[in-house]
Structures are given as structure tokens and as C-alpha cells.
Design a protein around this nucleic acid. Sequence first.
DNA 1: CCTCATTCCTGCGGGC
DNA 2: TGCCCGCAGGAATGAG
Length: 284
Amino acid sequence: MPELPEVETVRTGLARWVTGRTIASVEVHHPRAIRRHLPGSAHFAALLTDRKILDVRRRGKYLWLPLDSGDAIVAHLGMSGQLLCQPAAAPEEVHLRVRLRFADGDPELRFVDQRTFGGLAVAEGGAELPAEIAHIARDPMDPLFSDAAFVAALRAKHTEVKRALLDQTLISGVGNIYADEALWRARLHGTRPTGRLTGPAALRLLGHVREVLAEAIGHGGTSFDALYVNVNGESGYFDRSLNVYGREGEPCRRCGAPIRREAFMNRSSYSCPRCQPRPRPRRP
DNA sequence: CCTCATTCCTGCGGGC
DNA sequence: TGCCCGCAGGAATGAG
């Protein structure tokens, strides 16, 4: 379940292994792995062939690789996507979707994705910022992210605070795991209405979001099931530092109360029933 | 305009 | 043993 820290870990690895290299050939093994590209896989491959990768950039959970043509490769890992730098001789992964070979040989770049929620796309003229991801807000690690604008937008929303944290047009990079972790740190229940958060409380929450993301980046990300790995196929180990996510029934590390799990948007939310009481209804 | 439910996909593990 | 079902969940999409 790659969120910002996992994607940033992949970005770092890619930057090291593919920056400055020229793509020699492209193999698409599964058409669904190429997103929003009506001309088809062959055209996708043609736009990349003989192009040099200039950089590897990230916004939220999206990556893009500017090319010397002015286009960019856009990548989203979805639930189970992996970008792996592998020697050409390595056996094909079961869920290998796309393979990029380079003019200078090894390593090649492979997009592997079991559940095909992720995918690659070409953003024509998108080297600076692909139009496909222009609607995604800056993430809280971005130097140009505005804390004040975020707080104002959050408080103006008519929704619950966890929904807002997952809204990538408000703040990007946060998924189910880090939303729960930040809310635990902030001692807020996810169903708290955003409109009833004070400015200072919203700012504190943002601080906790940024803090948990930074710590997770420092650990190389979180992995539960080996579906998330860095470009060398290694898992992060931040999962050892999680305080609520996946800990139903285990004691809260702050107060000892058993962590609860609640259904939320077709998934699960974890919280401490004592540190994070449910908000009282405004009017019964 | 805004909010929210639905849908895409596959492997795993629990229950019977 | 084997089958079925629920679950994991980011984000595009369309409904209301």
C-alpha cells in the first residue's frame, strides 16, 4: 500500500538508477498497465524509445520522469505496483506489466503490478508538471506547500477530517495508514467534522502528518505483505513503528486501551477509543 | 460546485 | 481438501 514515504523511497532509487539513461526499447505485457493512452501501447512505446530520462520527480503518490523530448512518463503504483531495477537476465516476475530496456544495458526497469490498480502513462509536454496530475495538491514535504492555505481549505470543507486527509486535491500523499497514524498522534477521531477544528488544532494535525511521513521516509517506508518494495526489491521497516494501523485489540502505546477497528469507506480505520473519542453529535 | 458511493483487480486466509 | 467469500485499498467516475 504505497503512500508518500514508499513512493519517495522508490523515487530515490529510480533517480539513482535511471537518471541520464536512454530508453532503447519498451515492452508492454499488459495493456491495462498503460493508462489514459487511447492511441495504444505501440504509440506509448514509440514516444519513449530513444528518449533520455532527465529526472525522477514526485507529487504525492505520483511519480513522473521528464524526458528530453519534453514529454514525461507518469507512474502510479496503485495498491500493488512495483518499479524494479533488474538485470535483463533476471527471470520475469509473474505480474510483469511493462519492461524498459536501456541503450547502455543493465539494469532494465520493470513495472510489476499484481492488482493492476497502478499504471504508467505518457504525459505529452508534461516534463514540468503532467496535466494528468495537475489536480493533485502539493504534498506536505513540498517546499511550496502552504500550511495556511491547507488549514483554511480544511476548515472550509463540509466533511470528516479523515476523509479530508485522504482527499488528494487538498493534501496529497496521505493514505489510509498514515492518516490513521497522524490522527492518533493528534488525538483526533477521524469522523471529527473539519469545520469544527480550530485553526491551531488543524495546524497541529498537519504537523503530525508531516512528522509521521518524515519518520517513515527515514525508515524506507512501510511494508505489510512484501507487495511494496524499493527498486532493489527490499521492504521498508516502518511497520514496526506503527501505533494504531493493523493493531486491533492490542494496547494503545499511550494509554493501554485496546485499539479499535471501525469500518470506513469500504476499508478499516484504527484508533484508540480513549485517546481519540468519537465526536459528540452537534445536535442529537 | 460539492460530497460521496461505486468500481476497478488479484491473492490470501478464514470458515465450513 | 477444496471452495467461497471477505478483505486489502487509491483514485477516476458519475450520481445526487
